Simulated assay, not measured.
Amino acid sequence: MPADADGAAPEFAHGDILKAVTFWTVLLCDGTHVVRHLERHEPGMILHGVYDGTEQNLGKPIALDAFDATRDLPPVRALPIGKRLAVAYIPNTMFAPDWRDIPGASGLGTSDYQGAETFLSAIDETYTSWMRDIRLAKSRIIVPEPTQLS
């Protein structure tokens, strides 16, 4: 089941070693109840659970077969990968040289697009020129009046 990047709760050991991850997906939100599917990745296994709660509270577990999205999932799935995780943590660059003169800001991280500004600017310039050419070409099209057949 795909999950958004902000729909994960990683657990680390010894600073930066990924120990486990819990992904969640909202299956139902009707204003009072929020039903979530939790997919927990631990070394060598994946655990699935569905919980009925509120916006602030995870709530109580309910049966996996209560929703089509989780009906075919086993509660526990052993993986043939030994004691490794089926997910990986790939951190962004954490040093931001552009912010080194701002106290406390250099460790906030770097944009994924830093260093690609020239390339992105070239794409923008090319696309803008191309769209201008298309607009000018439309103004040159001459469509004759339809002739009436007698």
Rank of each mutant, 00 (worst) to 15 (best):
V21M: 13
A105C: 15
R77T: 12
W24E: 12
I90G: 00
L108Y: 15
T110D: 13
R135S: 08
A78W: 07
A8P: 02
P74N: 04
K60Y: 11
P61M: 08
P80V: 07
T126D: 06
D124Q: 12
Q114D: 06
W99Y: 08
I141F: 05
L28P: 00
G82E: 09
H41S: 14
E39P: 09
Q114M: 06
N92P: 00
G109H: 01
M94G: 15
S106Q: 05
K19V: 04
G59T: 03
R135V: 13
R84W: 02
Y127P: 07
F23L: 12
R40L: 12
R36F: 12
S139Y: 14
S111R: 14
L73N: 14
P144R: 10
T70A: 07
I102A: 12
F95I: 09
A105E: 07
I134K: 13
P103G: 06
D30Q: 01
R40S: 11
A88D: 10
E117I: 02
D4C: 06
M94C: 10
D133G: 07
G107A: 04
K83N: 13
V34W: 03
L64F: 05
L47N: 02
D16E: 02
E11D: 08
T22W: 00
I17M: 03
D133K: 11
T110Y: 13
R36E: 14
L120S: 03
M45F: 00
V26D: 13
V26Q: 12
K19A: 04
D16S: 03
R135M: 11
T118K: 07
A116K: 11
G31C: 05
E55P: 02
P74S: 07
